[in-house]
């Protein structure tokens, strides 16, 4: 099994991101980023909250779990020194260029994908804080250039993070025929894991 801290991080992220996407898209529907009120609306099955106010309740509840989870993860990789050897390194790039070993190449891709995940998760958090408090955090919000840029970047977190989860999950499930993925989401230790 993976370390408990990393398993919790993955579980919380998976559930909270799903909820943030559903409530975020419900908020989006109040005034679509592309095209305004006449723009294309997201179908109801994928939405969370029922209406704008309900979606805001969920979005601004889950943002705490998302942010604190990311913070706890950051502290964990800092103090466990995982940051020194856990993320993508020169040798992974070299392996992709030179190695014929399928397992080694898979592992290199795996590290690239989850390393990219970190800045993407941070960007969705920062763009979210900027939209939530554009006056109190004016220095942050204005660094995005314009409100439309900010909205677009925050919205793009949805397709980007969904793609990332699919790619990350697919690669992980190929490593050791699913053993890695199972061990990441294992809730309790079982004899065959």
């Amino acid at each position: 099994m993976r370390p408990i801290a990393i398993r919790i991080f993955h579980w919380v992220n998976l559930i909270v991101l799903w909820g943030l996407i559903g409530s975020g898209l419900q908020i989006y529907n109040a005034n679509p980023v592309f095209g305004g009120r006449q723009g294309w609306h997201i179908p109801g099955a994928f939405l969370l909250g029922g209406w704008l106010g309900g979606a805001r309740n969920w979005h601004f509840t889950l943002m705490w779990f998302f942010g604190l989870n990311l913070l706890a993860y950051g502290l964990y990789i800092l103090f466990s020194r995982r940051w020194q050897h856990y993320f993508v390194q020169q040798k992974d790039i070299k392996a992709l260029a030179q190695s014929q070993n399928l397992q080694r190449r898979q592992f290199a891709w795996h590290r690239i994908v989850y390393t990219i995940a970190i800045p993407l998760l941070l960007l969705s958090l920062i763009s979210g804080i900027s939209m939530y408090q554009p006056s109190q955090f004016h220095w942050l919000a204005r660094s995005f250039g314009s409100w439309q840029n900010l909205r677009t970047i925050h919205f793009l977190a949805v397709p980007v993070l969904i793609s990332l989860v699919i790619v990350h999950g697919t690669i992980a499930s190929n490593i050791g025929n699913g053993v890695l993925l199972r061990s990441m989401f294992a809730i309790k230790s079982t004899s065959n894991s």
């Binding site: 909820g19 409530s23 309740n57």
Partner: peptide, 11 residues
């Protein structure tokens, strides 16, 4: 999707 449906009721 079930999570969304339940969560919507609980808004």
């Amino acid at each position: 999707l079930l999570f969304n449906a339940t969560g919507t009721v609980l808004y």
